Simulated assay, not measured.
Amino acid sequence: MTTLGRALAVAATAVAVMAGAAPAHADPDIDFANQLHRFGIYGQRDYNAWLGKITCKRMARGVDGDAYASMAFITKNLARGTTQEQVAQFLGAAVGTYCPDMAGALRGAAEG
Rank of each mutant, 00 (worst) to 15 (best):
residue 46 D to N: 14
residue 86 Q to W: 08
residue 49 A to C: 09
residue 63 V to W: 10
residue 30 I to V: 15
residue 27 D to G: 09
residue 63 V to G: 03
residue 52 G to F: 10
residue 98 Y to V: 00
residue 60 A to V: 10
residue 39 F to I: 00
residue 82 T to P: 07
residue 96 G to F: 02
residue 46 D to Y: 03
residue 92 G to I: 00
residue 41 I to V: 15
residue 100 P to S: 08
residue 55 T to G: 11
residue 55 T to D: 10
residue 65 G to H: 09
residue 34 N to Y: 04
residue 99 C to I: 10
residue 99 C to L: 01
residue 54 I to M: 12
residue 23 P to S: 07
residue 87 V to L: 06
residue 59 M to H: 12
residue 62 G to M: 11
residue 48 N to Y: 03
residue 80 R to Y: 10
residue 46 D to F: 06
residue 46 D to R: 14
residue 24 A to D: 12
residue 31 D to I: 05
residue 99 C to Y: 03
residue 84 Q to M: 11
residue 88 A to H: 00
residue 91 L to N: 00
residue 100 P to E: 08
residue 37 H to T: 14
residue 70 S to H: 03
residue 73 F to V: 05
residue 26 A to H: 13
residue 55 T to V: 12
residue 67 A to F: 03
residue 74 I to W: 04
residue 43 G to T: 09
residue 23 P to G: 08
residue 51 L to W: 04
residue 35 Q to C: 13
residue 52 G to C: 10
residue 51 L to M: 11
residue 78 L to M: 09
residue 93 A to V: 01
residue 92 G to D: 02
residue 81 G to N: 08
residue 39 F to Y: 12
residue 82 T to F: 01
residue 58 R to M: 15
residue 68 Y to V: 14
residue 21 A to R: 15
residue 44 Q to R: 15
residue 24 A to Y: 06
residue 94 A to G: 03
residue 62 G to E: 12
residue 71 M to Y: 01
residue 43 G to V: 06
residue 27 D to S: 06
residue 40 G to C: 09
residue 62 G to K: 12
residue 90 F to S: 04
residue 23 P to R: 13
residue 68 Y to I: 14
residue 94 A to P: 02
residue 78 L to A: 01
residue 63 V to E: 14
residue 82 T to E: 05
residue 32 F to K: 09
residue 32 F to E: 01
residue 90 F to T: 08
residue 54 I to F: 03
residue 21 A to S: 15
residue 27 D to Y: 10
residue 63 V to S: 08
residue 93 A to C: 06
residue 95 V to S: 07
residue 92 G to L: 04
residue 39 F to T: 08
residue 47 Y to M: 08
residue 100 P to A: 09
residue 21 A to T: 15
residue 79 A to I: 09
residue 24 A to K: 14
residue 44 Q to P: 04
residue 55 T to A: 13
residue 56 C to S: 13
residue 36 L to S: 03
residue 58 R to V: 07
residue 92 G to S: 02
residue 102 M to T: 09
residue 69 A to Y: 07
residue 35 Q to E: 10
residue 71 M to Q: 02
residue 42 Y to R: 11
residue 90 F to K: 03
residue 25 H to T: 15
residue 96 G to H: 01
residue 56 C to D: 05
residue 32 F to G: 01
residue 34 N to C: 02
residue 44 Q to L: 13
residue 79 A to E: 12
residue 35 Q to R: 12
residue 61 R to D: 15
residue 44 Q to F: 12
residue 75 T to Q: 09
residue 100 P to W: 03
residue 32 F to T: 06
residue 37 H to F: 06
residue 88 A to M: 00
residue 89 Q to N: 02
residue 35 Q to G: 07
residue 96 G to R: 01
residue 49 A to M: 06
residue 42 Y to V: 13
residue 86 Q to C: 03
residue 61 R to W: 07
residue 92 G to W: 02
residue 74 I to S: 02
residue 46 D to C: 05
residue 101 D to R: 10
residue 32 F to P: 08
residue 36 L to A: 07
residue 31 D to R: 03
residue 51 L to Q: 10
residue 54 I to H: 08
residue 59 M to Y: 11
residue 31 D to Y: 00
residue 74 I to C: 04
residue 72 A to H: 05
residue 48 N to G: 07
residue 101 D to I: 05
residue 83 T to I: 02
residue 24 A to F: 09
residue 81 G to W: 05
residue 79 A to F: 07
